[in-house]
Amino acid sequence: MNNIIVTSIDYILNWSRANSLWPLTFATSCCGIEMMQTVASDNDIARFGSEVFRGSPRQADLLICAGTITYKMAPVLVRLYEQMAEPKYVIAMGACTCGGGMFADTSYSVINGIDKIIPVDIYLPMCPPRPEALLDAIRKLQDKIKKESIIDRKKFLEKHKTKLFDTNSNKEVINEY
């Protein structure tokens, strides 16, 4: 009986979550332009219910991290992620956010992948990904949301927490936002 209730709630919640993903306008570099192109006329992200780009993290469900994240930007990214209200999802758009991309190891200021600091749901490699690829990533995320259960999601978020290091003591900083 319990299971039936949980699955039915899951179904309704997931259905409504998946079809109205509101992204945050978080564009740092090249991928941001392709994200703009995805919104523009030829690709029209509105077909998948994600055209409502929000300037404030409080109103957004989806963080499309479009572009390289550097050490200076990292605290900003973590803070924005923490400010978003649950349920929240992350797409790592572009090679830089997936694993450092072209800058991995040769650059002194680029983080090798945002999964070191925030939990990531969908990885979208390529440098930069085409608008169609971003649409595909959003579709994949919708499929993922439609299948997930509340309990699994909770476990996932407990396992992957946001992480920042204090450079002076080399200890993890506990975020208090």
Partner: peptide, 22 residues
């Protein structure tokens, strides 16, 4: 500086043809 990727230092570590795509 929120997007400082250290392009100039990277040039010192890569050969010319390696640097060209960057």
């Amino acid at each position: 500086g929120y997007l400082h990727r250290g392009m100039e230092k990277m040039a010192e570590r890569l050969s010319y043809i390696q640097y060209l795509p960057l």
